Amino acid sequence: MLGIQVSPLEEFRYHSKEENLCLEFYIKRDDLIHPIVSGNKWRKLKYSIAKAEQNKNEAILTFGGALSNHLVATAAACKEVGLKSIGYVRGEELNEHSNPTLQQCAELGMELHFITREEYNLKNEKFYTDELHIEHPNVYIVPEGGANYYGIIGCSEIIGELPEDVSDIFVSAGTGTTAAGLLMGSRAHQTIHIVSALKGEWMEEEVKKLLMYSLFDEEAVDELMQRAHFIYDAHCGGYAKTNPELIEFIQKVYQQTGVKLDPVYTGKSMLWIKHNWKQCSPTGRLVFLHTGGVQGATFMQEKLAVNLYPES
Rank of each mutant, 00 (worst) to 15 (best):
K126F: 01
T129E: 00
L108S: 12
K51P: 01
K56P: 03
P100L: 12
T62Q: 07
P137W: 01
E58H: 08
G109F: 03
E92Q: 14
I86F: 00
Q54M: 14
K46G: 03
V81Y: 01
C105Q: 11
L94D: 08
Y88I: 15
Q103F: 06
N124H: 11
K79C: 09
I86Q: 01
D130Y: 00
I86Y: 04
C105G: 07
T74P: 03
S68C: 11
Y140A: 01
T62M: 10
E111V: 09
M110K: 08
H70N: 05
I141Q: 00
H97A: 15
H97G: 02
I86P: 02
Y47K: 07
E119F: 01
Q54A: 15
Y88V: 15
H133Q: 11
E53D: 08
N57F: 03
S85D: 12
E125T: 01
I60K: 00
E131C: 03
T129D: 00
A52N: 05
A77V: 06
A77K: 04
G87W: 03
G91I: 08
A77N: 07
K84G: 10
F114K: 02
N69R: 12
N124G: 02
N95S: 13
T129M: 00
L94Q: 08
R90P: 04
A52W: 07
E92V: 10
H97W: 05
A76F: 10
I115A: 02
G64D: 09
S98R: 07
S68E: 11
A77R: 04
N55A: 14
S98M: 08
A59K: 05
F127V: 03
C105L: 10
P100S: 13
N57D: 14
